[in-house]
């Protein structure tokens, strides 16, 4: 077992534990803090994969900016505890969900962890394949990332701006409406 696998296992355990924490904590603040840990462990994954730029962006944007907003919203809104404790109308749903989830996770991990072998097949494809490209030195640096973003992936990058316009409009529509309501 190499150091790489050890490092991966440790980060993976952290990511899963914090992911469970996000949905398991009853207090919204703890959930938000677990989400920060989860996002940071994702950044560590990117580092393991040599993705320096995306790891930095992950820390700055997600764990930094977005999570601070989350915490603000949670602290401003978390007063109505009664609302959070409504019981499920369909009581068997939770049980069935847990069982189905365990079956899915077991089947998926059995297939992916026991049977799948990517490496031999990838090696057979020669040097031009994705796995040699992305594991080449410098493939994850800022320059390579920028080249991919503004050349190979220019079109999807531009499309995201339309999506952001839609999101902003949504905030305007729904936000202005609730303000008009409170002024009535």
């Amino acid at each position: 077992m190499s150091a790489n696998i050890l490092a991966f296992s440790a980060v993976a355990a952290l990511a899963i534990a914090s992911g469970i924490g996000v949905i398991a904590f009853r207090n919204a603040i703890y959930s938000a803090l677990s989400l920060i840990v989860n996002l940071l462990s994702l950044a560590l994954f990117y580092l393991i994969l040599n993705g320096m730029f995306i790891a930095a962006a992950q820390v700055l944007i997600y764990a930094g900016a977005i999570m601070v907003l989350f915490l603000f919203v949670v602290t401003m809104l978390s007063s109505d505890k009664a609302e959070l404790q409504t019981s499920d109308r369909i009581s068997w749903q939770r049980l069935v969900g847990v069982i189905a989830g365990i079956i899915f996770a077991a089947a998926a991990s059995f297939l992916l962890l026991v049977h799948a072998q990517i490496a031999p097949d990838a090696a057979a494809q020669g040097s031009n394949n994705l796995f040699t490209q992305i594991s080449a030195p410098g493939s994850g640096n800022t320059e390579a990332f920028g080249m991919a973003l503004f050349h190979g992936f220019l079109f999807p990058f531009e499309v995201t701006s339309a999506i952001i316009v839609a999101a902003i409009l949504g905030a305007v529509v729904l936000g202005r409406r609730s303000r008009a309501k409170s002024e009535d």
């Binding site: 992936f153 079109f155 999807p156 499309v159 995201t160 339309a162 999506i163 839609a166 999101a167 409009l169 949504g170 529509v173 729904l174 409406r177 309501k181």
Partner: peptide
């Protein structure tokens, strides 16, 4: 013609529709 554009297309059609579904005030 790419998984990337498929995903962006689905998000670009869904996001406005979420808002439009809730458009009738009150």
């Amino acid at each position: 013609a790419s998984l990337m554009t498929i995903f962006l297309g689905i998000e670009l059609l869904s996001l406005p529709l979420y808002i439009l579904c809730a458009f009738s005030p009150g």
